[in-house]
C-alpha cells in the first residue's frame, strides 16, 4: 500500500475505533459485532465504497445547488415559468380598448357587415397606440391588395360570403373609393347575383341551365340584395316545379330532356339526385 493511502486508511480505521469509544448508548458487544462484520468485508469493496460515496454525495450536492427553488411547486416544472409566460407584453390591445376613444367609428360600425371585424384586423397591432396615441399612429391599408385577402373569389370560401374577382371588378380603383371599410355597403345594389354567388354562377355556366335566370327558381325579395341573411331567397319545394319543363307533357321546347314524373325517381325530390345548378353531372 502506498504511503498516503496507508495514512488515509489508518485514519479511516481509527475513526471507527474512536466512534466505538464515543458511542455511549451502544453496548460494546454490538459494536464489536459491527467491527467484526466490517472486517469480514473484503478489502476491495471497502475501497470501492469511496468512489461510490463520492458519486452519490456529488449527486445530492448538485441537486441542492442547481435545482431551481420553485421547481415542483405546482407540478413537475418551474413555478415561475407560468408567470414568465403570462407577463409577456401584449401587442394587440383588443377592440374594446379602441372603442373607448373612437366612438364615432363604433357608431358607424354598429350595424354594418363589418361589425364583428375587430379594428386590429385592418389597422394592425394597437397596444402601442393605446399607450401613446400621437406617437404611434396606426395606418390602414388603402390599396387594392388588402381587401381581397378576404373578398377575392376562392372556391374554398364558404358559399354566400361576399367575393369578387378583382381582375374584373373595377380594376385600378382602390376598394375604399367605393366602399367604406367601416360600413362596406355596395355603392350600388349588385345587379347580378354572381357578385356574391360566384361559385354557383361558375357551375351554372357549364350547364344548360345557364340560360335560366336565378329568379326563375329562386323567388327573391328585393331586400335580399341589401340585407342578404335576413331576407333569404326561396327555393322550389316540389317535384312539379321541375316538371313544368321536364315532364312528358310540359309545353317546353322539344330538346329539353323529359322524364315520366309518375315513375322516375320514386319518392325522391329532383334535387336529391340532380344538382340544379349543374344537372348534367351524375
Amino acid at each position: 500500500m502506498s504511503l498516503p493511502s496507508a495514512i488515509f486508511f489508518s485514519k479511516f480505521n481509527s475513526f471507527f475505533d474512536n466512534s466505538y469509544e464515543f458511542s455511549y448508548n451502544v453496548t460494546p458487544l454490538t459494536m464489536r459485532k459491527v467491527k467484526l462484520l466490517w472486517n469480514r468485508i473484503p478489502d476491495q469493496l471497502k475501497r470501492l465504497l469511496i468512489p461510490v460515496i463520492l458519486v452519490i454525495g456529488l449527486f445530492i450536492a448538485m441537486r441542492h445547488l442547481f435545482v431551481p427553488s420553485d421547481f415542483g411547486k405546482y407540478g413537475h416544472y418551474r413555478a415561475s415559468a407560468v408567470e414568465e409566460v403570462a407577463s409577456k407584453e401584449i401587442k394587440y390591445s383588443g377592440h374594446r380598448v379602441c372603442e373607448e376613444c373612437h366612438d364615432d367609428i363604433v357608431e358607424i360600425k354598429k350595424n354594418s357587415y363589418h361589425r364583428n371585424v375587430a379594428c386590429e384586423v385592418c389597422h394592425g397591432p394597437a397596444a402601442a397606440h393605446t399607450q401613446d396615441p400621437e406617437g404611434n399612429q396606426l395606418l390602414a391599408p388603402t390599396g387594392r391588395g388588402y381587401c381581397p385577402l378576404c373578398h377575392e373569389y376562392l372556391p374554398s370560401r364558404p358559399t354566400g360570403f361576399p367575393q369578387i374577382v378583382s381582375e374584373s371588378h373595377n380594376p385600378m380603383r382602390a376598394c375604399i373609393s367605393c366602399h367604406d371599410p367601416h360600413d362596406p355597403k355596395p355603392p350600388t345594389v349588385p345587379k347580378e347575383c354572381e357578385a356574391c354567388h360566384a361559385d354557383i354562377a361558375r357551375a351554372k355556366a357549364l350547364s344548360h341551365h345557364v340560360y335560366l335566370s336565378c329568379t326563375q327558381c329562386h323567388e327573391t325579395p328585393p331586400e335580399h340584395k341589401v340585407r342578404p341573411r335576413e331576407f333569404r331567397p326561396k327555393k322550389p319545394n316540389n317535384r312539379e316545379f321541375c316538371g313544368t319543363c321536364h315532364s312528358k307533357d310540359a309545353p317546353s321546347p322539344k330538346e329539353i330532356p323529359r322524364v315520366d314524373m309518375a315513375t322516375h325517381g320514386e319518392r325522391y325530390m329532383c334535387w336529391q339526385c340532380h344538382y340544379p345548378h349543374l344537372p348534367e353531372v351524375h
Binding site: 500500500m1 502506498s2 473484503p42 478489502d43 476491495q44 475501497r47 470501492l48 469511496i50 468512489p51
Partner: peptide
C-alpha cells in the same frame, strides 16, 4: 486499482 495491494488467493477468488 484504488491503491489496493491484496493479491492473496482469497481476494482474487472474491474478484
Amino acid at each position: 486499482a484504488l491503491f489496493s495491494t491484496d493479491t492473496s488467493e482469497k481476494s482474487v477468488e472474491f474478484d
